[in-house]
Design a binder for these strands. Structure first.
Length: 291
DNA sequence: CTATGAACCTGGGCGC
DNA sequence: TGCGCCCAGGTTCATA
């Protein structure tokens, strides 16, 4: 499941293989893949044609390709299962190929958006003076962004009546964190996912942010996480970070710190993994005695 | 305004 | 063998 590190790996791949090339044509094979482009598939394809792609950017889990001299950018979100693949023209179409973009140069590669579950997609948007696609203006900076505002994040935690994992997944407070890295960072920080954020001290917030950065940088250094064949980077290679996860997906396996079996709990229509000893639950969880 | 939960999707895995 | 159900989960939208 692509979170910030995986998306950044894709961005780097696009920078190498797609930047500074001019679009010859775009082919939309599944309308749902451009549903965020409200003017429709034909308009999407028409507006890309003939324009040169600039340097790819990213914020959180969103990435975008500026279209030079248009004031617009192709915004991409991989959703749950999206991939951006650079393939030779001769490569057979993937089963879930949704969009194909060809270029005017003689290099034998094209860009493909492949997405089994179709939660992801591409769309075209005006960019703000800062170069940000306008529809993601509400997405907070991510923790690897040098301009991420730690103090604002801390104050938001104290102001809101919520719990820490909900806050970590709230892309308007901090972006790029998904279910996997939330569980990993909380395990490293020894914080239970259901802890209320109201009483967080500044050192506690900064400790947690440090672990969020650490786990993301660790994933980046090995090229992203993959649990199955769904995630591959822009060149089709899988990541390897799944081998070093400490909490996510490790139900009943011993905690690497204390040996206590890791637990899985249903949480918000998904799962939370945690060590019941290292990550002590809050005294009261929904009015029921903890643990 | 804020917090919460359903809906959107598909394919793999499992019980019967 | 095949059917029905559950699960994975990021984001958006409706509801309380």
């Amino acid at each position: 499941m692509p979170e910030l590190p995986e998306v950044e790996v894709v961005r780097r791949g696009l920078e190498r293989w797609v930047a500074h090339r001019t679009v010859a044509d775009a082919e939309v094979l599944h309308p749902r893949a451009v549903r965020r482009h409200l003017a429709g598939a034909d308009d999407f394809a028409h507006r890309l044609k003939g324009h040169r792609i600039g340097t790819p950017s990213r914020r959180g889990k969103y990435l975008w390709l500026p279209l030079e001299d248009t004031g617009q950018a192709i915004l991409a979100h991989l959703g749950m299962s999206g991939q951006l693949l650079v393939q030779p023209h001769s490569a057979p179409d993937e089963k879930h190929l949704r969009i194909r973009i060809r270029f005017t140069d003689a290099r034998d590669t094209e860009l493909r958006f492949v997405d089994q579950r179709t939660f992801g997609g591409l769309s075209l948007h005006d960019t703000t003076p800062e170069g940000l696609p306008d529809i993601i203006a509400h997405i907070a900076r991510d923790p690897l962004d040098p301009l991420f505002d730690e103090e604002a994040f801390h104050q938001a935690l104290r102001r809101k009546r919520t719990t820490i994992k909900r806050a970590l997944l709230d892309q308007s407070l901090i972006s790029g964190v998904g279910n996997i890295y939330a569980d990993e960072a909380l395990w490293r920080a020894r914080i239970h996912y259901d802890r209320p954020t109201t009483g967080f001290t500044r050192p506690r917030t900064l400790l947690l942010l440090g672990h969020v950065r650490d786990v993301m940088n660790a994933a980046l250094s090995v090229g992203g996480t993959s649990f199955d064949s769904l995630y591959v980077n822009v060149n089709g290679e899988s990541g390897y970070f799944d081998r070093s996860l400490d909490a996510y997906g490790r139900e009943n396996l011993p905690c690497r710190r204390c040996g206590t079996p890791i637990r899985r709990r249903p949480w918000m229509n998904r799962s939370s993994y945690y060590c019941p000893k290292c990550q002590r639950p809050p005294r009261l969880v929904r009015g029921v005695t903890a643990r």
